[in-house]
Design a protein around this nucleic acid. Structure first.
Lengths: 150, 150
DNA sequence: GCAGGATGGTTGTAGCTACAACCTTTTGCT
DNA sequence: AGCAAAAGGTTGTAGCTACAACCATCCTGC
């Protein structure tokens, strides 16, 4: 009971904390940041929409809306995939790359402050295990979340 | 890194799972359910808006909107607090009580299925500790969340 | 070689949350 | 007492997400 009540509280409060830091310092949603971060680590900073949706644990419609907004702001560009005319590729622009480089340190610091640094190293390990198990239960087919690596 | 990436995924996916079960089976949001659950455990099934906001980890405006909707549906009633003319009390109606009694088993089962039962007892304990630390960092003044009990 | 289903993606809309502005009552200071 | 500031709530609005409907392309079996 205690575990669940506290987890529910974290679920409710933590996203707000992360969001407001990013919105204040970079005018970005946490999810928008995550999308750009995933692109920045991909080969050629390019990913197909479906793959990007999986990696960011989101549905395709949600991603589509978000990418459109980021495209309007000049951080991402979309172009049809040459191999598959149905598919769309999303690529981080130079400006988007600059943006993510500038934003990352502050965001990482926030995550450290509120999560990593308040735990012992052993607890961090436990947390990874625990979240792994929960993810397996929540998304058994792993249609979303390419997060089971390591 | 692994711990954080997975926690971020849980933050993104778990609320959706809980919400859809409740919306499907009871036409309730997870947060609406939580509000009614907190009221159902309070003395006289009544709580002041501020207290209710704290216990449910929400801001007052959010609670105000939610309570209004639940009032329209007949699950909650509001009345001015006799001791403090500024304050408002929220009370669960008989219908609200019936609703929560009917809804609880399915919700609890969902939580077990996706969280508690996929962890070892030791992990459940660890999870409570970990979330406690995170909450302390996220909300140092404990203005929200009366969740540090035990 | 083509019909029917599956895959990839976009768009429209309803509903919830965050933020800011506002009003009322209470408290604190002098 | 009296006035300023704080506490308790509500309302309005903008913005994001979920869900459903939709279109286009690809693939499979026959």
């Amino acid at each position: 009971m205690t575990a669940w009540v506290r987890l529910a509280a974290v679920l409710e409060l933590l996203p707000g904390v992360l969001d407001s830091q990013l919105r204040r310092d970079a005018e970005l949603t946490h999810y928008e940041y995550y999308v750009m971060a995933m692109l920045s680590e991909a080969p050629k900073r390019t990913l197909r929409m479906t793959a990007l949706a999986q990696q960011t644990n989101a549905t395709l419609p949600r991603l589509s809306h978000v990418v459109k907004r980021l495209e309007d702001r000049g951080y991402i560009e979309r172009f049809p995939c040459p191999q598959d005319a149905r598919a769309t590729n999303a690529r981080l622009t130079a400006e988007g790359w600059k943006k993510i480089r500038a934003t990352a340190p502050g965001h990482v610091e926030t995550v450290r402050q509120h999560v990593i640094d308040v735990l012992t190293p052993a607890q961090v390990g436990e947390l990874a295990e625990i979240c792994g198990s929960i993810l397996a239960a929540v998304d058994p087919d792993r249609r979303l979340s390419g997060v089971y690596d390591r």
